[in-house]
Amino acid sequence: MLYLWERPEVFQFLSVLLLCSGILGLIYRRTLLGMLISVELIMNGAGLNLVVANRFFQTAGVDGQVFTLFVMGVAASEVAIALGIVLLLFKRTKKIEAEGLKELKG
């Protein structure tokens, strides 16, 4: 009898749930910050999935964990730059909704 944390399906279900709730949030939210939160959920799901694949299906190396670290670095820099853009747009337009932002070109 395996413990619950020795079965990969549990973790994979959680990462699918994170991915799909992130996609739902991207459709559902109308604010830029809400969309950013959903993207963070998707990235967390991806990292969890990589670690699970490394732990259960490819146990010889540590590549999945290394890539999860890369995902974390990309997520951190992405959040920094996106929040700068969001705050700049809020100062200019006084709105936090994503609609009506028509002056992003050039």
Partner: peptide, 12 residues
């Protein structure tokens, strides 16, 4: 990331 998001929500 969490602290950044909280700051952004409070500033926006």
């Amino acid at each position: 990331v969490g602290v950044l998001l909280i700051f952004a929500v409070m500033l926006a």
